[in-house]
């Protein structure tokens, strides 16, 4: 029942598709951090309208399916003159989506930075921007590492959705082979294992990061 030949044949193809999955995850994570950082700064600094802009962004991203967001971005980018960029659309959509959750994670951490530290920085004459980048954010990121790690595991688990706009990542490759081979176990089993392995290596990297930073701080 388990066709070994098909298994051997498909593993190399799946492996190269897995690299696309990792690339998509990394790009989405970078965008998520970028959007999350901007959004949390908008929300908590006293820029007029910033609070509402950020809250609206978070609400929309959390209140609609990623699949729908993906289609909106995919069909929206051409309206901005960016055409035929499925990978970019997927990374932007997943990054925007995850950025909302990153906002929430960072907000909790930022609000935990003691007011006194910020006052000490102000008393020294630091500007708001300097206080954000030198005092608040470095601490917030370290404190949030565990929560961010699980958020980025979720990002990894959302990347299969990119297959709906034909990004040839792991799941898409699986569906294509499966459609040709008329057999599924040999393909979806390695795929499932593949995701678990990628997720595990992610967790290891972030554990290592966490240890490093925690050692640094104590």
């Amino acid at each position: 029942m388990f066709n070994l030949d098909l298994f051997y044949e498909s593993v190399p193809i799946l492996a190269s598709a897995a690299i696309v999955t990792v690339e998509l995850t990394v790009c989405s994570v970078i965008l998520s951090l970028l959007f999350g950082t901007i959004s949390v700064m908008l929300q908590l600094s006293k820029i007029p309208g910033g609070y509402w802009l950020s809250r609206t962004y978070v609400s929309i991203m959390r209140g609609t399916p990623l699949l729908v967001q993906l289609f909106v971005v995919f069909f929206g980018l051409p309206l901005l003159g960016i055409k035929g960029q499925a990978f970019l659309a997927a990374a932007v959509a997943i990054g925007l989506n995850s950025g909302a959750y990153t906002t929430e994670i960072l907000r909790a951490a930022v609000q935990n930075v003691p007011e006194g530290q910020i006052e000490a920085a102000r008393a020294m004459g630091m500007s708001t921007r300097q206080i954000w980048f030198r005092v608040i954010l470095p601490q917030a990121f370290v404190v949030s590492l565990p929560a961010l790690t699980s958020e980025f595991t979720i990002v990894l688990k959302s990347t299969p959705l990119a297959s709906v706009v034909a990004v040839t990542e792991l799941t898409y490759a699986g569906v294509v082979i499966q459609a040709r081979a008329f057999s599924a176990v040999e393909i979806f089993l390695p795929i499932a294992v593949g995701y678990v392995l990628i997720a595990l290596s992610f967790t290891q990297v972030s554990r290592w990061l966490e240890r490093r930073f925690r050692l640094l701080h104590t």
Partner: peptide
């Protein structure tokens, strides 16, 4: 303006009851 206020503030040092060192 903020920039000038900051320059003035940097001429006054402050030591807080709860130290307020930056832990990172």
């Amino acid at each position: 303006g903020d920039a000038r206020l900051r320059r003035q503030r940097s001429r006054i040092g402050m030591v807080f009851q709860s130290f307020n060192l930056w832990p990172h």
